[in-house]
Measured scan of single mutants.
Amino acid sequence: TRVETATETAWISLVTALHLVLGLSAVLGLLLLRWQFPAHYRRLRHALW
């Protein structure tokens, strides 16, 4: 049971790290898009909202 718990903890930390990385890359990508294509971003936002 001790090994299982350790594996579970490792998986949880791995998944958390993955989610953090994905979230950060998504935010960075959005910022980059907004910085590179302001007109396109505004049009996209206008279409979405």
Rank of each mutant, 00 (worst) to 15 (best):
G23C: 14
L20W: 01
F37W: 07
T16Y: 02
H40L: 09
W49P: 07
T16W: 05
L30R: 02
H46Y: 09
T5R: 01
W35L: 15
L32Q: 01
H46R: 11
P38C: 07
A17I: 11
A26N: 04
A26L: 10
L44S: 02
L18K: 04
E8N: 02
L24I: 11
A10L: 02
L24P: 05
L18G: 01
R45I: 03
A26I: 09
L24W: 06
R34W: 02
H19P: 01
R2F: 12
A39P: 04
L31R: 04
L32C: 06
A10E: 11
G23L: 14
T16G: 03
E8S: 04
L18I: 06
T7A: 10
S13F: 14
A26Q: 02
G23W: 06
P38V: 08
A47D: 03
V21H: 00
L31H: 03
I12Q: 08
T1H: 13
E4K: 10
L20R: 01
T5A: 01
R45N: 00
A10F: 02
A47L: 08
A6Q: 13
V27D: 01
R42P: 06
F37V: 05
G29H: 00
T16P: 04
A17M: 10
Q36W: 15
H40T: 08
W49V: 06
I12F: 06
T1I: 14
A10H: 08
T5E: 01
S13Q: 10
P38D: 15
L28C: 05
A39L: 14
L18Y: 03
T5M: 05
V21R: 03
V3E: 00
H19A: 04
S13C: 11
L44F: 15
L24G: 06
V27T: 11
L22N: 04
L48Q: 00
L18P: 05
P38Q: 15
S25M: 09
T7S: 11
G29Y: 01
L33H: 00
L18R: 03
T16C: 12
W49A: 02
R45F: 03
G23E: 02
R2W: 12
T9N: 10
L22E: 04
W49L: 08
I12N: 05
L18N: 05
H46G: 08
T9Y: 09
Q36M: 15
V3T: 02
L33T: 07
L22T: 10
L18C: 02
F37N: 02
F37R: 07
T16N: 06
G23Y: 05
E4C: 08
H40C: 14
